[in-house]
Structures are given as structure tokens and as C-alpha cells.
Design a protein around this nucleic acid. Sequence first.
RNA 1: GCGAGCGUAGCCAAGUGGUUAAGGCAGUGGAUUGUGGUUCCACCAUUCGGGGGUUCGAUUCCCCUCGUUCGCCCCA
Length: 421
Amino acid sequence: MGSIQALRGTRDILPEEVFYWQHLEAVARELLQRSAYQEIRTPLFEQTDLFERGIGEATDVVGKEMYSFEDRGGRSLTLRPEGTAGVVRAYVEHGLHAQGGVQRLWYLGPMFRYERPQAGRQRQFHQLGVEVLGSRDPRADVEVIALFADFLMKLGLSELSLELNSVGNLEDRQRYRSALVEYFTPYQAELDADSQERLGRNPLRILDSKDPRTQAIAKDAPSILDYLGPDSKAHFDQVCSLLTNLGIPYRLDPSLVRGLDYYTHTAFEFKSGSLGAQSAVGGGGRYDGLVSELGGPDTAAVGWAIGLERLVILLQAVQPLAAPAVNLYIVSRGPIAEAKALKLARDLRKQGFAVELDLSGSAFGKQFKRADRSGAVAALILGDEEAQSGTVQLKWLASGEQQTLPQAQLLADAQRLFGKE
RNA sequence: GCGAGCGUAGCCAAGUGGUUAAGGCAGUGGAUUGUGGUUCCACCAUUCGGGGGUUCGAUUCCCCUCGUUCGCCCCA
């Protein structure tokens, strides 16, 4: 075809699907509002530097997945690959920390990553995220996780599993890292190629390799949880017991490592088995170092992000939703009737009804087919006879019953006839 | 970036090395129909994702390319 198509990794959300998005957004807004979170909207592009410093130059996201380009002024810009860096930038830039106390923020919008598209993965995708800034309290970690769980439950997706880990602080991780290198080095030759390369660069990542031989070796590797310092351990134990307290089930997964450098302490993911190769619907954790890294005061923070395309995939599987149907469908034929139908539609809409007017002018038979498909409770029929007599024929689509009445009376009685309960 | 499968109309889909590429749904136009949704007729792919090659001839065989799907990597 010579026509222009959407770019690879991007797609149109058509009306039949958009209803799922609206539903999910409505549920999220309501829940977040009730939990005292405030929406923040940050730009879709930022200075490239923000992501390099925030996410970490060694990460794959920064190293090979960013949409970076120079603008006409020669500045290096990047389409945001995730939401946290921008939110923290805004937090610092506008001195939100100076308002004191804890800031609870949420955002929703498109993110961009240059990757090969796959089930549940696109180049432009959408995330819903929350960030709690200014609290070191383990209750903040748990509040945020509980919020995620509640959101899933409200969507009817309570079968997702929560995986939990702590990656400790910088010192904990350094000690753990050397322990891992020490453990894996003797096996080096047996590891898969990727993992061999990761041994020097990022040994933590070896743990979640999918290669069976590597997995077998990694099974007996030391656990990060044994390398947490006393403070880290106390924090994590608190998080675990508070979750248990709330009755939120979780599974400890010492191999859970998050891909962005800014994470510290608590790390978690909600997983599903029905997303093809992708299992994470959303994930997050603590990032106590990021605010200061980006030039703000030392500020502890926790948050998460959910991949909305993935959520929509799951949502479509559990609850089929249809776009709201119209209440009334108006069918007309002949110039006078058509003009009256147009006015009738407008008058009924003023009364609050959802009215669809057939614009085709085709045979009544075809117009009725469309009336059925519209989901309306009744069709209003205006033909030559009705046009002349000033009446309208009313047909209940479910029963097929018909009645004729004057147009003025229909308008006067509309609330009673089609009353919205 | 790497690997595998798949590209015939808006959707589903048959098909063949040889003058006009089945069919269904949807759509468009018209006729018919007043217990108005029926029925009928016509239209709806100068072309089989695109380009090149082999051949007298290719949608069919070969190569390249693009797209798509799935997987690896990575992530949400």
C-alpha cells in the first residue's frame, strides 16, 4: 500500500478499545484522589541529561532505548522513557520539598522507548505512576504497594502476584556484588554468553537470566537478603510485616532486580502469567538517592509505574466492556421527515438522552439494521406519513411493539417514556 | 541489535507458472417493502505489502526490502 501507516511500535487506540482506557483511568483517578494523591503533568521531552543522570548511563534504557535528538537550537532532548525522572525534576525545580511534609503525586501518559515491539511492548506506551516524596517510613512503601493492589482489585485483576525484594543501600549492594562475582567466577565458562558479559558489568542481572543452565547455577548463589546492613534489614522487615498485617500476600524473590539505577531498598513487581513473554504489569520501589542526585535536598521516595497497555490486555480478558449505547435511534426518509428528525434529535439531546440520527437516507430496512446495532432501546420513525401528520412512530427494539404519537407529545413525555432510571 | 513465522479488499478467506484473482461479512447506489428491519439488482483488488530477478508469461519460483506477529535482550 502506498498510504501512510502508523510507525512501528506505535498504534491507534480505536473506539472499541478506548472504552477500556476510559474505565481504567476513571477507576485510577477516583482511587488516587481518595488516597490524597495529586496529579502532576510533566513534559513529554526533557533534557537528555536528566535521564542519563537519573536512570543511570549504564542501564539499557539509557544506553540503547532512548529517543534522543537535537532540536533546532542544538540542545540534546529525549522523549521521556519513564516518568519518575521528570516528576523528580519538577519537584526539585519548583521547590515542592519546601512545602514540607510528604508529597504524593501521580501521573499518566505516554512514554517512549526504542525497542522491538512484542506482545505487551511498544515504542510508545503508557504508564500510570505514583511517587511519594519525603518519607523514609516503611509505611510509605506499604501504602504505595497497597494502592497498587487496591487498584488491581477494583479492576477485577486480583489474581496478579506480588514479588518483593530489597536491594539495600549502596554499601549493601557493593558487598553483595563482590559476593556474587566471587560465587559466579568459577562457573564463568558455563554461563550463557549474556551472563558472562554481565559478570563484570552488572552481576545482579545474572540472577534473572532465562537460560536454564545459568538458572541452575544461580539457584545456589548468595541472596541479597543476607547482605543487608542492620538498617536496611530493619526497614525491609517492617515492610514485610506491615504487608502481612494488611493481608496483602507477597512472595520474596531475592533475584528481583529493577532495571533502573535509582532504586534502593524495597523493590517489587506485580506479575501476570498471561502477557506472553512479558510478565511485569507494573513495578516500583524506593529511590532514596534520586532527588539529591538531581540536585535537590536529600529526600527519600517510593513509587511505582504500571504499563497500561499490559493492563488493558488483562482487563479485556476478564471483563468485556462495551461502549455505552445510545438511548434512541432516529430513522427517517424523505426531505421533510429528515429535516424534522434532525430537530427531534436535538430536542431529545437537550433533555439528556443519547440520540443517534441515521444520516444515510437509505431504505428503511438498512436503517433498521443499524438501529439494532446501536443498542438503543427504541427507534423513532419518521416517514412521509409522519412528516405530513406531524406524528412520529415509536418502536421498542426489544419487543417490536409500535405506537404512533404526535411529535410534541413525544417530546413532552420523553422522560416518562424513556426515563433514565 | 539477534532469531523464527506470516503479508491476497475494511474484516474473514479460496486460489493458480498462462486471456476476466472464488466466496462470505461489512460498505455504497437503486428497486421493493407500511404488523417499515424483507427480498432483489448493481457496484465494491487494472491486482495479490514494495522493489528487483528467473521465464514467452508470475500473485504463484528466487533474492532484497518494508511491515507484522512471536521469542531473545530489556522493561512497564
